[in-house]
Design a protein around this nucleic acid. Structure first.
Lengths: 154, 154
DNA sequence: CTTAGTGCAAACCGTTTGCAAATGC
DNA sequence: GCATTTGCAAACGGTTTGCACTAAG
């Protein structure tokens, strides 16, 4: 349980920042939310519990949660920033369905190794990487195949 | 030579669009420019030859050039859209230096094959992908190592 | 002469910032 | 009390759009 909260509070103390109700609430909501939440989604969820919290605070607090090592920033097709859990959720890459916006996480040690090889060849020191495969997930492929139940006039 | 221009003009005719001086100029500038140009850079280059051309026209025309299969959209760290040549410039991925914003293009058939394998495993149909390795290029690593020539007071 | 293209200014959208009021320590 | 945080509104930066005007076919 509250492990993340402890990490967050330690991070705040360590950097001389204050523990506030808003920050705790935003962390709670983020922890309870699976997957890849956008700032807007977080905002909506937070608002349900405390309508007085502002958009700005979500942005600022997510940066802190990220600094504490609890969240990781992810960018997909649209410009929006999304966050996924970083704590006990090791690195992986994504298959992104452009139909339903669904996400499948994958991890390939082979690809990771090949990346290192390539970097070595160019004397390039990798700090981070982003590997995204865009396409159609199996569900959406089937949906596309299924005959549309619309009238001839549709 | 003018192969791209021909392709572009054909594309315009085929889609019932008009050939204009601005479009030709923007294509010319793009063709002559190596690497990964931002819209802003193109705008500056185009302005030199015809200061009356507007920003909007660059945006709109680059979309057309892309549709014609001559340009490919690339996104890096900053939000800006950049374009690289698509015609006779096969698919590749990028090493991106976060110090100097330099780019190294790479292509790994092994990684491409592994991607296919992963997609197959999930019954996912890949349409496109983006694979970017961020880090420090060899030049910037050396620059960082070099003793700074600043005074003790610096 | 009709339809599409242009340039400008304004709108847009996600994100950031300046600021006075509020709050943690 | 002092410094930090908050929420708001305004600013921002890249991109898009509405519109009267111009030009291609």
């Amino acid at each position: 349980m509250g492990e993340e909260k402890e990490i967050f509070h330690n991070h705040l103390k360590k950097t001389g920042l204050k523990k506030t109700d808003q920050r705790d609430l935003i962390l709670d909501v983020f922890i309870e939310t699976e997957g890849h939440v956008s700032v807007e989604e977080l905002y909506d969820l937070v608002k349900r519990r405390d309508p007085s919290v502002g958009f700005t605070t979500i942005y600022r607090t997510m940066k802190l949660i990220q600094d504490a090592g609890l969240a990781r920033e992810v960018r997909f097709i649209d410009g929006r920033t999304r966050y996924e859990h970083d704590y006990k959720h090791p690195h992986h890459d994504h298959l992104i369905c452009t139909e339903c916006n669904g996400l499948i996480e994958f991890f390939s040690p082979e690809i990771e190794a090949l990346q290192e090889e390539i970097a070595e060849k160019y004397n390039f020191k990798i700090v981070d990487h982003s590997h995204r495969l865009f396409g159609i997930c199996s569900v959406c492929q089937h949906n596309a195949l299924a005959p549309k139940k619309v009238s001839a006039r549709g």
